[in-house]
């Protein structure tokens, strides 16, 4: 079975959820579990959609910790679970594991070391794990992973008592400025003021790979409710535009959205107002599959005039 289209079936024969590429650690459980994840921070060389290569960093997870798409790591847990992340750092500099809003100011993991980070899984919602040492360079180089927290009962709701969905997808947005990567791997500094990304990714993939892969090409049957967990650990804002669909924004940064709900263009990050940039952006949106045979989606992005990787599309298939 393609792990990226892994369909998780609970022990009662009920389809719990599809989290493409993110394999839930366990089916339904009566009590909170203690879960351990082993993650390695390492250097990788990515072949980009135009054939060029990019030296990057990534978190690489173990059997239960593989990420969606081309992402090396991703965690799916239940609210209340006791989580232990063992980070082994094979990079040449100290990094750490943080979860914005949940687990911050954690100790550094020196080069060559293994450091344990423990936390209790927070309220059901979408989060991300990232390096926060030093500054934004780790995230720019790729040190992040989605963290999906399901309700404690394991049901297919976005939160306890919240909206029901039939399937869920995790869409991690990030980007790269190839000049930054070249400078960092050469041991040089890079001023974030000069950060002008020229490659754009969903789950580490660019178009057309995004529409060839089951975890970014969204397949649904008419009437299904699809939950999209849109997570932006990148360092720029991304407006995500849906063709053929308005979505319902359920929550932003773990707060229920009560005003700006029905959208065809969802801004990630939303947080310029008040004029304070915030890049802890997560949005959960739902859409109801209609009879539209297929519809493309694109996010409108600034950036380079190279083509086609300056925008990354994925496809929605309503059958």
């Amino acid at each position: 079975m393609d792990r990226r289209s892994f369909l998780k079936t609970g022990c009662y024969g009920v389809t719990l959820f599809t989290t493409a590429g993110l394999i839930p650690p366990l089916p339904r459980r009566a009590v909170a579990a203690s879960l351990s994840f082993a993650i390695t921070a390492e250097a990788v060389v990515r072949t980009l959609i135009d054939g060029s290569v990019l030296s990057a960093w990534q978190f690489t997870g173990g059997v239960n910790g593989a990420g969606p798409g081309a992402l090396g790591a991703g965690l799916v847990v239940r609210s209340g679970d006791i989580i232990s992340v063992a980070l082994t750092n094979v990079l040449a500099q100290a990094i750490n594991v943080t979860i914005p809003g949940v687990l911050e100011n954690t100790p550094a993991c020196p080069p060559g070391a293994t450091q344990i980070y423990q936390f209790t899984a927070p309220a059901a919602g979408s989060y991300y794990v990232c390096d926060a040492l030093p500054g934004d360079i780790g995230r720019a180089m790729g040190l992040f992973a989605p963290l999906i927290v399901m309700p404690a009962d394991g049901g297919n709701r976005l939160n306890a008592g919240g909206a029901l969905f039939d399937k869920q997808y995790t869409l991690v947005l990030h980007e790269a400025d190839d000049r930054l990567n070249a400078a960092i791997v050469a041991g040089q500094a890079y001023a974030m003021a000069d950060y002008e990304p020229n490659y754009f990714f969903i789950n580490g993939l660019s178009y057309p790979d995004t529409s060839a892969r089951a975890d970014t090409a969204i397949a649904m049957t008419v009437g299904q409710t699809i939950a999209l967990r849109i997570i932006n650990p990148g360092l720029i804002y991304n407006p995500l535009h849906f063709h053929g669909y308005h979505v319902q924004v359920i929550s932003r940064n773990r707060s229920l959205e009560t005003a700006v709900v029905d959208k065809d263009t969802v801004s990630m990050c939303y947080c310029l107002l008040p004029k304070v940039a915030c890049f802890l952006c997560t949005v959960i949106a739902c859409l109801r599959a209609s009879g539209l045979p297929a519809s493309t989606d694109a996010s409108t992005r600034p950036g380079s005039r190279t083509d086609p990787w300056r925008r990354t599309y994925f496809h929605l298939f309503g059958i």
């Binding site: 263009t265 801004s267 310029l272 004029k275």
Partner: peptide, 11 residues
């Protein structure tokens, strides 16, 4: 409000 953000593609 006294200010509002409009992202690319939004209305």
């Amino acid at each position: 409000v006294t200010q509002w953000q409009v992202a690319a593609g939004e209305r």
